[in-house]
Amino acid sequence: MDNRKFLSFGIKTGQRYSTHTALLDVWQEADSIPVFEHAWLNDHFMDLSSTPPGPYLESWILLAALAARTQRLRIGVMVTDNTYRHPAVFAKIAATVDVISHGRLNVGLGTGWSEQQHHAYGIPLPPPGERVRRLGEACEVIQRLWSEPAVTFDGSYYQLHEAPCDPKPVQKPFPPFAIGGEGERTLQVIARYADIWDCSVATPNLYAQKRLLLESYCRAIGRDSATIAYSRHIPVDPADLKATLAETRAFLEVGATHIIYHVPVPASGNILRRLAEEVALPLQAEYQ
């Protein structure tokens, strides 16, 4: 299968110990480099690797601020934990950010997973199977709120009663979903709802196996899997961009089409320009 015509490159910046000003500098620089088409935050509330955890900006408020100060990049949170926000409230948040960005939002979603963060903030973390079922209901609720005047919904986990979402998103019928996950039940939700699939398995071979499984679920429901972009995060070591190039190529060879480079903040040493010139642009020429 050849999805090369869909190849795109973007960046991701973590909020750990980062200020709004430092993040804005990176995003505005990426906004000025045409090969980077999208930019992402994550949805952590705290640093999971240190005690005390240190400062960590909330993702969707920060995304709205960055949306207002960028012009071209598609923007998103990769991925929003469905367990952290009721999907009807989240639909309102995301619609507002799509309005602020003039229709540049990609809506990242996932089941939720961090026991540490759920425990810290007193948020219930259901068992894995229930989290997947909740994600499926959430996708339906959100899309209906974005496309119907008022929504009544009586699901197993969510209930709405003539709920409006006004204003609607700028993008019609609604902003694209970027859904992360690798488990079989999650992949079935992805096959039904995702426009972008993000997969974080360890190796290209595993990525290829998961891609084939997703494509089988698409066939089962009559969906063309070529309508889904296959996303992959790639770490960036400013001292070794050859490694970044090699890892990117390895995942492109097994079907990845939507590359997200995890870049440092602040982006010192002209790293974004170097990443564009030494990695993204050569690969764009090679694969398109």
Rank of each mutant, 00 (worst) to 15 (best):
D2H: 14
D2L: 11
N3C: 08
R4T: 13
K5H: 12
L7S: 10
I11A: 05
Q15H: 07
L24D: 10
W27F: 15
W27K: 08
D31L: 02
S32F: 03
W40P: 09
L41C: 03
N42K: 04
M46W: 04
D47F: 00
L48F: 08
P53F: 01
G54H: 03
L57I: 11
L57G: 09
E58N: 09
S59N: 07
W60G: 04
I61T: 15
I61K: 06
L63F: 09
L63M: 12
A64V: 09
A64T: 12
L66Q: 12
A67S: 15
Q71T: 10
I75F: 00
M78R: 03
M78P: 01
T80R: 02
R85V: 13
P87S: 06
A88G: 08
V89F: 11
F90S: 11
A91N: 07
T96G: 04
V99A: 10
S101A: 11
G103H: 15
V107K: 06
V107R: 05
L109A: 13
T111M: 13
T111G: 12
Q117F: 03
Q117M: 15
A120W: 11
P127K: 14
P128T: 09
P128F: 07
G129L: 02
E130H: 03
V132W: 06
R133D: 15
C139K: 05
V141N: 03
Q143Y: 04
S147A: 15
E148R: 15
E148D: 12
P149W: 01
P149L: 00
V151T: 10
T152I: 02
T152D: 12
G155R: 07
S156V: 10
Y157L: 03
H161P: 00
E162I: 00
P164S: 09
D166Q: 07
D166H: 09
V170H: 07
K172N: 09
P173D: 12
P173A: 08
A178W: 14
G180V: 00
G180M: 01
E182I: 11
L187K: 08
I190D: 05
A191H: 04
Y193R: 01
W197T: 05
D198E: 07
A202N: 14
A202K: 14
L206F: 02
L206P: 00
Q209E: 15
K210P: 02
K210L: 07
R211H: 11
L212F: 03
L213W: 03
L214I: 07
L214S: 07
R219D: 13
R223F: 08
A226F: 08
Y230C: 02
S231E: 05
R232T: 07
I234D: 02
P235G: 09
P235K: 00
V236M: 01
P238E: 05
A239V: 01
D240C: 02
K242C: 02
A243N: 13
T244A: 15
L245P: 01
A250Y: 07
L252A: 11
L252N: 10
E253K: 14
A256M: 02
I259G: 02
V263R: 13
V263T: 14
P264F: 01
P266T: 08
P266F: 03
L272W: 04
R273C: 00
A276T: 12
E277Y: 00
E277T: 02
E278A: 03
Q284A: 14
Q284T: 07
A285D: 10
